[in-house]
Computed example of a mutant assay.
Amino acid sequence: MIDIKRKEDCCGCNACGDVCPKGCITFKIDNEGFWYPEVDMDTCIDCHLCEKVCPILQPADKVERYDEPRVFAAYSKDDSIRTDSTSGGIHSMLANAMYAKNAYVGGAVYNEDHTVSQIVDANPQRLEEIRSSKYLQSNAEGVYKEIKKLLRVGKEVFFCGCPCQVQALYKVLGNKEYDNLTTCDFICRGVNSPKVFIKYMDMLERQFGAKATKIKFKAKEWGWHNFSMRVNFANGQEYCKDRYHDLFFIGYLQANLLTRPSCYECHFKGFPQKADITLADFLI
């Protein structure tokens, strides 16, 4: 069974819960706001599947990619998509190409409570939710099982997630490469605590007296380099501060206080990445 003795040894990918045949793994949130697997020993059959899919214990080494990356600089010619995106809007262009083939697109979306979850959906109208960076950990419970089911019936899938989530997906798939699967990750600086972000949003909602209706990390009010946090509220008000004055960005980018313990000892950085495509900002 999966047994986390050091928090640095769990990236919170949720893969162990997806493969448990008895559903005996739940995820408990610690005082920092990160989830870790907890096994119900009364129902565990000691099959060790949870250990076999853990990308830290068993890296996806059978998934082979280029030893040296092939690098392309590109951006979307659609001004509205590029402005609303990070990394030049390339993810949206890839997703639109996949939607045109009736494929399913996976990515991270906000929930009503301002947490983030991974989804996979064939509806192009959900792309606006998926688009753009969300600098906190996304819950992937159930998404690996759903993707595996879609692939087995011949559906095409385009999945975007953190490097650890992409490796977790390949582990759930048995390190098997599917011709109908395309994976995409990004240069990751670490995932932040959902608990901290909810507290931050509670503060803003009290300050502005209304529910937040739209959250945009890396808004471009002051350009691409001096990006900002923008939050819109149900009463029509708007909050916007740049990366040097917004409290969440200060805690993340300047103080390095909000990130999951495993991210400081990341097992998934460097090349070759396991995803088919890795996105990043190209600054000149």
Rank of each mutant, 00 (worst) to 15 (best):
G89I: 07
S80V: 15
G174L: 14
F271C: 06
E221F: 00
L136V: 08
S262P: 02
V166K: 11
D42G: 06
I56Q: 08
C24W: 04
G17S: 14
E129V: 01
D40M: 06
I277R: 07
N235Y: 01
T83E: 15
G17P: 05
I147V: 13
A255D: 13
D61L: 13
C13R: 07
K101M: 15
K149E: 15
S85P: 10
D121M: 06
Y178D: 09
F159G: 03
G12M: 13
L253T: 09
D84C: 06
L258H: 11
C164T: 10
R230G: 00
R126N: 14
D84M: 08
E68K: 15
S133T: 13
V172I: 15
A100Q: 14
V231M: 01
L247V: 02
C10R: 01
I130K: 03
Y110R: 02
E205G: 13
I4C: 01
V172T: 13
L57I: 06
N256E: 13
S193G: 11
D30K: 11
T86A: 08
K7R: 09
F158L: 15
V166A: 08
C10L: 04
I147F: 08
E238D: 02
L150E: 01
S193H: 12
K241G: 00
Q58M: 05
V63G: 08
R152A: 15
V19L: 05
F227N: 00
K5D: 00
N256S: 09
D185N: 12
F34I: 09
C50G: 03
N139S: 09
A108G: 04
E38A: 08
M201P: 02
S228K: 00
K171S: 08
P55E: 10
Q207S: 12
M98S: 14
T183N: 11
Q167E: 15
G209K: 07
L94I: 15
S133A: 13
D67C: 08
